[in-house]
Amino acid sequence: MDRNQIGKWLKNPGKMANKYSFHVVYFCTGCGIIEVPPSITTRWDAERFGIIPVATPRQANLFLITGYVSTKTLAAIIRTYEQMPEPKYTVAFGSCPINGGMYYDSYNTITSLDKYIPVDGYIAGCMPRPEAIFIGVTHLWKLIDMDKADGYKRYREDYVHYRANQEQILGELDWPPLFSKENL
């Protein structure tokens, strides 16, 4: 551990722990997932930064959207994202979640993800190499340090709008709103 960080640890242990213990929800949303196994295994070993995949969203704090998002997946993504406990971070992989990428004219994939759930960071490329994942994660560290990885706060604040956007695409959602009035 870096000795300079001790002060930070004492000041805000929750934030620091969130930085160094990314539990990734394992969801192969798109083809970008193919680079996740290399990055968590021998060659790149994400575990040395505390990044490990976990089984359920309840235990996770990082959501990797690994590639394009079809509408059927979007429903699952929203559900999974809402089940993650706060604070939670979303990192989108590849060009597809940014603007549709090469599927800009596909009738079944959405074009930009941050209209539906807040995205804290993007890793561009198709596909991003495993190194790019680490660069993305280190960038996310910086964002957390600067309190700019505030996607979950935005989601809470603008939930009405996010929900409206989701419903515009997916129709009536079959789960109740995450934030009711008293929950906000």
């Binding site: 079809s70 059927k72 997946t73 699952a76 596909s106 079944n108 994939t109």
Partner: peptide, 10 residues
């Protein structure tokens, strides 16, 4: 169908 992009159409 979670990954359906309609390749054949595209």
């Amino acid at each position: 169908g979670y990954l359906h992009r309609g390749f054949e159409k595209l």
